[in-house]
Design a protein around this nucleic acid. Structure first.
Length: 565
RNA sequence: CGGGGCGUGGCGCAGCCUGGUAGCGCGCGUGCUUUGGGAGCACGAAGUCGCCGGUUCAAAUCCGGCCGCCCCGACCA
């Protein structure tokens, strides 16, 4: 019998003063987690129960698609990481043993598992395989934050698919979509599956599962027509420009002394910001200096830029810009630019624009892309609320927590680690891989963020530490405690997980703690109720209360629990 | 890595400017009262004031260095 009087559930009235995220505050206050250091969190008994429940949901859904659970060490030799080129990653924790041999603490497990598969898989008959584990990941995060949302150590469900070819990979990927959709539904989360960045390593496709909430670190672009993408890669038609100044036969200089920002120039010339061309000098890793141009009211998206150029870029420093342009920042523009120009699609077909003249205190008006400069066109701006998605619906943006991701790797790892098989024709081929992650602690944090109220946590019933909390009121030795214990047994017999608050505390304190902890159902046994052969039930979500007869209380509680969110 | 802030009983804070007896609320322990929405009274335990060094007769307080933690940004394979 789980009695609160002997259970380590250290609730606190006041959260850590500097904690800001709702989930951070409440998980600490409810006695579910404690911090050991920056980005290092301990799960206390009740918190670990939540974690295990999330884990079990994930396990059942992965097993359902035929995935096989296994376990790979966190401590690994450095060599495979060197071969894949990932030893250089700064977030990768490195260490050496007493003999001086170099090791890493794995941040993910592609290297180790691919290394094994390279040895064990010989033939097309051995494929496909989907393998997974629940294992600790270590990351030397530059900035852990918001409690469990971004930590240096966390447990991930990571799965890896191994297929003969791209079609096989598509199939394994699709199976993961199925499993993940079911996982996040069962966890009671509001979620979106969004298209996401495939990264500089050039994956073949990727999606993220995003749980919307204000504490989220990511932003997703959504539309009623079903468009869903991380803003890192989202693409949409811009809102049109109103009040564009008249087109001219050729660009015409105009004095703009001291006006170095979009706002200054727009106000100075009496034109909308969207009539300006914003110019970003960048240094691309391969092709060198490039001038990127967007509409004045748009923001450059560096990830889209890198994807469009096929190489990484960084902003140019002032001392790199001035010798090239013989100008100062604020007056740089594409007309007569001394470097190649990349222009955002949103300025295509616009006329009468204003751009820097590459000369201090001067701009050009009447600029027309394609006539006055010949750019390489690309979609490199960040979408905004009010843009139009490809299906014609209006986009809105939401902040969200990334709770899972799925990624088509292709042969990114099988090539350097030589994971090959012999096909029916006897030729050696590389294995096609996918990798798929779910952060369990993030599921918990997202659930808290999405469902908490003034009183505390309101767990989705599948994630709660217990299904029912029985609150026994009255003094030790009174009948209500004995009745509560019998009720506990009946609830257990109905297959519910139960916590009994048998502490000698005031009623108010027990109620407050119960609502803070957030089990989906609370049953209260008090003296008056015992006399009337009644117990009070409160459904945590919405806090609605009703009276149950003591005799049928366990069955009725089961019904209430089943209907809980 | 850049910017800002904070380290004082378990938690939240005051004291620091202007150096001189470490204080408040909550929590904790004991006893009595109380018991359906964070109870009351009484007594009590608990602090190397983050660490190291300097100034001073004297440092929580002033100075220097270091460490830790939070928030914003950069980053996030």
């Amino acid at each position: 019998m789980t009695r609160l009087s002997s259970y380590l559930l250290p609730t606190v009235k006041e959260p850590p003063a500097d904690a800001e995220a709702v989930s951070h505050r409440l998980l600490v206050r409810a006695g579910l987690v404690r911090q050991l250091g920056t980005g290092m969190w301990t799960f206390l008994p009740a918190g670990w129960r939540c974690h295990r429940r999330a884990e079990q949901i994930v396990r059942e859904e992965l097993d359902r698609i035929g995935a096989q659970e296994m376990l790979i060490p966190v401590l690994q030799p450095a060599d495979p990481w060197r071969r894949t080129g990932r030893y250089a990653i700064e977030e990768l924790l490195k260490l050496s043993d007493r003999k001086g041999a170099e090791h890493v603490l794995a941040m993910t497990h592609e290297e180790a598992l691919t290394w094994h598969v390279a040895r064990e898989v010989r033939s097309y008959r051995d494929l496909p395989q989907i393998l997974y584990q629940f294992q600790v990941k270590e990351r030397d995060e530059p900035r852990p934050r918001a409690g469990l949302l971004r930590t240096r150590e966390f447990i991930m469900k990571d799965s890896y698919s191994f297929d003969r070819d791209a079609e096989g990979l598509d199939r394994s990927y699709g199976l993961h979509v199925e499993a993940y959709d079911r996982v996040f539904d069962r966890c009671g989360l509001e979620w979106h599956r969004v298209a996401s960045d495939v990264g500089m390593m050039g994956g073949l496709g990727a999606h993220e599962y995003m749980a919307p909430c204000p504490a989220g670190e990511n932003e997703v672009a959504l539309s009623p027509a079903g468009y869903a993408a991380n803003v890192e890669v989202a693409s949409a038609a811009p809102r049109p420009v109103n009040g564009l100044p008249p087109a001219l036969d050729s660009p015409e200089p105009v004095d703009t002394p001291g006006q170095t920002t979009i706002d200054d120039v727009a106000r100075g010339l009496g034109v909308p910001a969207a009539a300006l061309l914003k110019a970003f000098p960048v240094i691309a890793s391969g092709r060198g200096p490039v001038l990127v141009v967007t509409r004045g009211d748009h923001r450059l998206n560096e990830i889209k830029l890198a994807n469009a150029l096929g190489e990484a870029t960084r902003p140019a420093q002032a001392d790199e810009v001035e010798p090239l342009f013989r100008s100062v920042p604020g007056y740089i523009g594409p007309v007569g630019a001394p470097v190649p120009v990349v222009a955002d699609e949103a300025v295509r077909d616009l006329r009468g624009l204003v751009a820097g003249a590459n000369e201090a205190d001067r701009h050009l008006r009447g600029v027309e892309p394609g006539r006055d400069f010949e750019p390489e066109w690309a979609d490199v701006r960040s979408v905004e609320a009010g843009d139009t998605c490809p299906a014609g619906a209006s986009i809105h943006l939401e902040r969200a927590i990334e709770v899972g991701n799925i990624f088509k790797l292709g042969t990114r790892y099988s090539e350097p680690l030589e994971a090959t098989y012999l096909d029916e024709g006897g030729s050696e081929r590389h294995v096609w891989m996918g990798s798929y992650g779910i952060g369990l602690a993030r599921i918990l944090a997202a659930a808290v963020e999405q469902s908490a109220d003034e009183q505390g946590i309101s767990w989705p019933r599948r994630l709660a530490p217990f299904d029912v909390e029985v609150v026994a009121l009255g003094k030790a030795g009174e009948e209500s405690l004995a009745v509560a214990e019998r009720l506990y047994d009946e609830l257990r017999a109905a297959d519910l997980d139960v916590l009994l608050d048998d502490r000698p505390r005031s009623a108010g304190e027990k109620f407050a703690d119960a609502e803070l902890l957030g089990c989906p159902l609370r049953l209260t046994v008090g003296r008056k109720g015992v006399e009337a052969r009644e117990v009070e039930a409160q459904v945590r979500r919405g806090r609605e209360r009703r009276t149950l007869s003591l005799e049928g209380a366990a069955q009725e509680a089961l019904e209430l629990w089943r209907r809980a969110p």
